[in-house]
Structures are given as structure tokens and as C-alpha cells.
Design a protein around this nucleic acid. Structure first.
Length: 423
RNA sequence: GGAGAAAUGGCAGAGUGGUCGAAUGCGGCAGUCUUGAAAACUGUUGAGGGUCACACCUCCGGGGGUUCGAAUCCCUCUUUCUCCGCCA
């Protein structure tokens, strides 16, 4: 959520910047500024009314105390009108404030200057590429065929138990998955991230805090009986650790990592692009989250990108990094780098990580602040990234590491797996 | 799930209808003293709105109510603790 004060002061700049998202925010922002003025006018009127009745009440109290009940009762009669007035002003105020809040929730984050213009993923800007794309046999298989051949993932079983998009990992497939999680967490903790185990169900306030609500309500599974949401990413519970928190400057940087299953409804997409592990309703992911001083958040973003790079380098997977264009940039992000691994057998790139700086957008919703050198509270910056999302990494390994003898496990994972080939 | 108790500032803990944004202690910050530190002493120390700055307003778990006036009384929700039951 954008800060009201910033909207007030830099309306035109914001409108211009949001054009990169192909959004004409002018009507929205004009309305916000108007409502804000209205809000403040009402607030002032209400405050004055309350001040007056506070004063009267005190006088009445004094009169009663000094035994002048008669005079007190006279004053009492005068309070009726004030009471009515403050009631109606209060109602009006909360209506306006509510409307203002709703509008603010509709405004996406301001894209960073680096964000390229564009309308779709076609316009994302490739900024880095590394790793050799292997030459595979002509009879190389996509990962879902390999999963069947080596009996390591059973998609039909998942359909039976739950439905499409909930695979069952078996034997060495399950072990490889567990190895990846352990490896990722070890890499992250070695880089200074503290491991956290967090709830997989979150309340409504947490959903609002990180921006999943109200914009993307339909993407989350909702538990109606208890009004809780299954997390779509560890970002939600981990970042919400800092909801309503005021940090001291010397607590920066905060670096957390956590492994969680993630649940996404992702309705409406079918076909080859969602086959196998390409898109699931439940998948595993290891996430990194940082809370930073605003002056350092972009340095931190670069650091996170380098960190994810180092993991992919160790896994020896061919990957590229994209800077998301305005049309593809998430609602809450100011700048996002997507990592994609090349799936040789499918001959396409698969997104395996998304690293973003949200600047103060989430912090404003979270009320995540720090005390600056003058003792004033300021909004902190939040960032997060996947390191990494499991299913597509798994798909990349299966497809790129397939040999006539079986799937050759990347060296760095062998100590975690206890085997070096799936055959 | 049943019975009871409780929720106050960073923490501990007073405050049961009026001058309470809230005693006191600890912690934090600043100063005095000291070569420096500790101790001691003095001062200061919640958040948000609003204002050029003041004034002023709101907030004592959340929401609602009673009252001229609520941290204090009533209703409701949530959470925590104790006892009982059930259970990984």
C-alpha cells in the first residue's frame, strides 16, 4: 500500500510511474487525494466537537465535586447536541476513511526506474544467463515421462487422494525432494539467513499484511470454518512476523529463511504448460526474506540475486535471469528478478525463483517500522525470494541430467541423497 | 470440549466512574561525577492523526453499549493462565 502522504505530495509522479504497469491511475489517485482532503476536514471538525464536549465534561465533574449539582445539570443539557454531532461526524468520517482505504488497496506499487516498459512476459528483459544447455539423446523424455519410467512421482495417485496438482513423490523421488530442501536450507543459513518454521495457515490480517488480500483472494485456499488461509508462499507467515513491529536501526539486516509447502488454487490454466510438475496446487519451496533499512534494500536485492545464482551454479543447471517488465511485475513489487531454468526436454524456460524488493509497500500495510537516528519512526523495506521452488528444479534436474543409464544426481546433492543416480 | 481467572506503555506492575496517556520499578537515552568505565545522582523516554509550529483529537487485547464523563460498569469476540476431559 502506498503511503497517503506520498500520494498527496507526488501524485503526478506516481501516475507517470504507474503507466509502466499500463495503468492509468489518474482517476484513482485524484479520488484518493479528494477523499483524503475530505477525511481531514471531517477529522478536524470531529476533533473540535470532541474537544468541546471533553471540556464540558470536565467542568461538570468539577461542579459535582464542589456540590454545585444545579449548575452541573444545566451544563449537562448542553452536551446533547454535541453528542449527536460527534456521532454523525464520526459515522461520516469512518465511511470516508473506509472508502479511502479501499482505494489505496487498489493501487499497486510504484515500479523502480529499472523496470522496463512492456505488457507481458514477452517484454521481460534478460539480464543474465549462465550454464551449458546439455545436448540430449533424441529419445530424451520430459520429466513426467521420466517420473513414470523410474517410478519416483505418481501423479494419478495424487488425483485419487486429492485431485489434479497434488503429486505423490515416491522412493528416490521423495528422497531427492527432501535432499533439495535440506541443501537449500543449509545454503541459506550458511549465507546468514536464520531458519524459521512457521504456520501453514494464516489469518486474514496476515493476508492483508503482505498483499495477498484483498487483491488475490481467489488464489488462496480458504478454510471457512476457522476463517484461515492456506499459505501460497512462506513469504506470508515469515514477513508477518514483523507486522506491528518497530525495529531499532541496529537490528538490520534481518534475514530469515523457511521451508514450507505452498498451496495455490491457480484456476483456469490447462494443457501442456501445466503438465507434470510445471504447475501444481501444492508444492514445496524454500524462501528467503529480508527486512532492510531503505538505504540498503537494493543492495540487499542484488545480494539475494547473487545468492540464488550461487545455488544454481552449484546445481549446474542452465538458467537465466529476467528483469520483469511493468506488465508482468507483481502488484506489491517495485522490482523483481525472475530466475528460469532451462528444461531441455520440454525446450522451454521454467520459472524457479522470483526475487523482489517491495520497498515500503508491504511495510506500510504491516506497520513495520524502525526508529531512525532522530528517534522518528520510518517504514522499513521488505524483500523476498525463492531459494528455491522445488518442483521445477526437480523437473530441470530430471530432464537435464538424464542419461541412458538413469538420472545423474548433481554432485552437490549426493551427500544429501545418499545415491548418485536414479535408475 | 467443561469450570474458573486474567489481558494496562520495551518489560514488570499500580490504577474499579471525573483533573489518567496513565503511579512506581526495571530497561533505554542524555547529562553530572570519572583518565575511561561501573556505581550514584539529575533529567528524559509509547503510537497514530492534525498543525508552518502549537493547540487539539484518538488509542489501556478487538468490537459494541451505558454515562455529561469509561483503563475502571455492561455485552460480545479473541488470546493467555489454572483445573478437568480428550489426544499426537
Amino acid at each position: 500500500m502506498l503511503q497517503l502522504q506520498v500520494v498527496r505530495e507526488e501524485k503526478d509522479n506516481i501516475i507517470a510511474a504507474l503507466q509502466k504497469r499500463n495503468l492509468d491511475a489518474a482517476p484513482l489517485l485524484e479520488k484518493v487525494v479528494l477523499l483524503d482532503e475530505k477525511r481531514r476536514t471531517l477529522q478536524t471538525r470531529l476533533d473540535n466537537t470532541l474537544a468541546e464536549s471533553n471540556k464540558l465534561s470536565k467542568e461538570i465533574g468539577m461542579l459535582f465535586k464542589s456540590g454545585k449539582a444545579q449548575e452541573a445539570n444545566v451544563l449537562k443539557e448542553k452536551t446533547g447536541g454535541l453528542k449527536e454531532e460527534s456521532k454523525s461526524l464520526g459515522d461520516e468520517l469512518s465511511a470516508v476513511a473506509g472508502e479511502l482505504q479501499d482505494l489505496l488497496y487498489q493501487i499497486p506499487n510504484i515500479p523502480n526506474a529499472l523496470v522496463p516498459a512492456g505488457t507481458s512476459e514477452e517484454d521481460n528483459e534478460e539480464v543474465f544467463r549462465e550454464g551449458d544447455i546439455p545436448t540430449l539423446d533424441t529419445n530424451a523424455l520430459p520429466h513426467w515421462e521420466l517420473a513414470k519410467k523410474y517410478d519416483i512421482i505418481d501423479f494419478e495417485l495424487g488425483v485419487k487422494i486429492t485431485g489434479a496438482g497434488f503429486p505423490v513423490y515416491k522412493g528416490k523421488g521423495a528422497k531427492l525432494q527432501r535432499a533439495l530442501i535440506a541443501y537449500f536450507l543449509d545454503k541459506n543459513t550458511a549465507a546468514g539467513y536464520t531458519e524459521m518454521q512457521v504456520p501453514l495457515l494464516v489469518n486474514e490480517a496476515s493476508g492483508y499484511g503482505t498483499g495477498q488480500l484483498p487483491d488475490k483472494e481467489g488464489q488462496m485456499y480458504h478454510i471457512g470454518a476457522d476463517d484461515l488461509y492456506l499459505i501460497p508462499t512462506a513469504e506470508v507467515p515469515v514477513t508477518n512476523i514483523f507486522r506491528d513491529v518497530i525495529l531499532n536501526e541496529n537490528e538490520f539486516p534481518i534475514q530469515y529463511t523457511g521451508y514450507t509447502p505452498c498451496f495455490r488454487r491457480e484456476a483456469g490454466s490447462y494443457g501442456a504448460h501445466v503438465r507434470g510438475l510445471n504447475r501444481l496446487h501444492q508444492f514445496d519451496k524454500v524462501e528467503i526474506v529480508r527486512v532492510e533499512h531503505p538505504a540498503n534494500s537494493y543492495k540487499a536485492l542484488d545480494g539475494m540475486v547473487e545468492h540464488v545464482k550461487s545455488i544454481l551454479r552449484e546445481l549446474q543447471l542452465p538458467y537465466r535471469i529476467l528483469r520483469l517488465c511493468g506488465g508482468d511485475l507483481g502488484f506489491t513489487a517495485a522490482l523483481t528478478y525472475d530466475f528460469e531454468v532451462f528444461s531441455t526436454a520440454q525446450d522451454r524456460w521454467l520459472e524457479i525463483s522470483s526475487v523482489s524488493n517491495f520497498e515500503a509497500f508491504q511495510a506500510n500495510r504491516l506497520k513495520l517500522r524502525y526508529r531512525d537516528e532522530n528517534g522518528k519512526t520510518q517504514l522499513a523495506h521488505t524483500l523476498n525470494g525463492s531459494s528455491l521452488a522445488l518442483p521445477r528444479v526437480l523437473a530441470g534436474i530430471l530432464e537435464n541430467c538424464q542419461t541412458p543409464k538413469g538420472i545423474k544426481i548433481p554432485d552437490v546433492l549426493v551427500p544429501y541423497c545418499g545415491f548418485n543416480i536414479i535408475s
